[in-house]
C-alpha cells in the first residue's frame, strides 16, 4: 500500500520532512518559512566539543531543534516515539502505514542503501518519511533525494538503530492533530526574535556573530599552531560543516535570506526585504570564503593566505552583526503592533 503523498525536495532534511508532513496535512508552508520559524540560522565554534578530534564548527542548531520549535510555535500536536526493541519499532511503523499515516523517521546515513557513497558518514540525524510498503520494501520520501526511494526491511531496521553519536533509537514521529487556526505571523516574529537572541544577544565568545569573530582569530593562528597539513585539515572541517549536503549553501545564509523575503511580504514590512538582500550578500561572502579555503586546502603551501581568509571571517562577522541589529529593531517594532 502507498499513501498518496507529494514528494518534496528540500535543501535541508529536517526542514524538508516537517514541510512535506505539514503540506500533507494541509498547511502550505515553504522550506524557507519552516527554517525561519524554527530559527535555523545559527553559529557556534566550541573548542571543547570535538568532531574527528577537531573543534566543532556548527552552522545549525542541534538536530531536532527546528522540528520542536516549529511544531510548538504553530501548536501542532506531534507524536514522537523512541524504541528499545528494533522489531517493535518496525511493527509500530507498519501499523502506522496501514492506518495511512505518513511517518517521519530519524536514521543514520552510513548504512542507508540509496545514499551517495561519498556522503556516508556516521551522521545519525537524517530525516526521512515512510509513506508505504510494497513487496516487502518501504517507500521512502527522502527530502534530499530527487525521487522516491525503496528500502528493504533489514536495511531500514539497521539505519533506524544506527549507533554512535546521537543514536536515533528508532525515533519515529507523525502529526496527530492540528489547531483550528494557525498564527503564522506570530510564529514568524517569534522565530526572528529567537534568531536575534542566538546570534547577537547570548553572552560568551563562541556563539553567534562573536563566534565567527572568534573563529577568525583561530584561523589566523592556524599556520603558527599547526603543520600545513593539519591546518588544512582544520580548515577543511569548517568548509565541510558549512557546505555539507543539506545546508542550502553558504551555511544556510541563502535559505535565511529567502525566509526574510517571504516574511517581508507576509508581514508587509519592506525593511525585511532589504535585509534579505544584505543576507544574500553575506551568503556570497561565505561562499567566497569557501572558495579561498578550498584553494588553500588543495595547494597546502600558501600559508600567508590564512590571514586573508581570517579577514574575510572578521568582515562577515561585522556585516552579520549589522543585519541582526537591524532585525532586532524590526522585531521590536513588530511585536509592539
Amino acid at each position: 500500500m502507498k499513501i498518496d503523498y507529494e514528494h518534496k525536495m528540500a535543501a535541508h532534511c529536517e526542514n524538508g520532512s516537517i514541510m512535506s508532513l505539514m503540506n500533507y496535512h494541509g498547511i502550505k508552508l515553504s522550506e524557507a518559512m519552516v527554517f525561519g520559524i524554527g530559527s535555523g540560522i545559527y553559529f557556534s565554534h566550541i573548542p571543547i566539543i570535538k568532531l574527528n578530534g577537531m573543534p566543532m564548527t556548527s552552522f545549525r542548531p542541534w538536530p531536532g531543534a527546528i522540528f520542536k520549535r516549529v511544531s510548538k510555535a504553530l501548536d501542532i500536536d506531534v507524536e514522537v516515539t523512541r524504541f528499545g526493541d528494533p522489531e517493535k519499532a518496525m511493527r509500530a511503523l507498519d501499523i502506522n502505514l496501514e492506518k495511512g499515516i505518513p511517518t517521519g523517521l530519524v536514521v543514520g546515513v552510513f548504512y542507508l542503501d540509496y545514499f551517495p557513497t561519498s556522503y556516508r558518514f556516521h551522521f545519525n540525524a537524517h530525516n526521512i518519511i515512510a509513506i508505504g510498503k510494497e513487496d516487502g520494501k518501504y517507500i521512502i520520501s527522502d527530502p534530499i533525494m530527487e525521487t522516491l526511494e525503496y528500502l528493504p526491511y533489514d536495511n531500514l531496521k539497521k539505519v533506524r538503530f544506527a549507533q554512535g553519536l546521537q543514536a536515533p533509537k528508532g525515533k519515529m514521529y507523525y502529526i496527530k492533530g492540528l489547531p483550528d487556526d494557525i498564527d503564522i505571523k506570530g510564529a514568524v516574529i517569534k522565530g526572528l526574535k529567537r534568531t536575534v537572541r542566538e546570534m547577537v544577544v547570548l553572552p560568551g565568545p563562541v556563539i553567534g556573530v562573536r563566534g565567527i569573530r572568534y573563529l577568525s582569530k583561530k584561523v589566523r593562528n592556524y599556520p603558527r599552531r599547526f603543520t600545513p597539513a593539519v591546518a588544512a585539515k582544520h580548515l577543511g572541517q569548517i568548509v565541510r560543516m558549512q557546505e555539507e549536503i543539506g545546508t542550502g549553501g553558504a551555511g544556510f545564509r541563502f535559505l535565511f535570506a529567502a525566509f526574510l523575503q517571504e516574511a517581508s511580504s507576509l508581514l508587509e514590512n519592506p525593511k525585511l526585504n532589504e535585509l534579505s538582500a544584505r543576507m544574500t550578500e553575506i551568503g556570497d561572502m561565505w561562499r567566497e570564503f569557501a572558495v579561498y579555503a578550498g584553494r588553500i586546502i588543495k595547494e597546502r603551501n600558501e600559508i600567508e593566505t590564512y590571514d586573508s581568509i581570517a579577514d574575510m571571517l572578521l568582515d562577515i562577522s561585522e556585516q552579520e552583526k549589522m543585519v541582526y541589529k537591524k532585525l532586532a529593531d524590526i522585531v521590536r517594532y513588530l511585536s509592539k503592533q
Partner: peptide, 14 residues
C-alpha cells in the same frame, strides 16, 4: 561525481 548522479543539491538563489 560526489553525488553519483543519484540526486542533486538544492540551492537557493535570486
Amino acid at each position: 561525481n560526489m553525488l553519483e548522479g543519484k540526486t542533486r543539491d538544492l540551492q537557493y538563489a535570486v
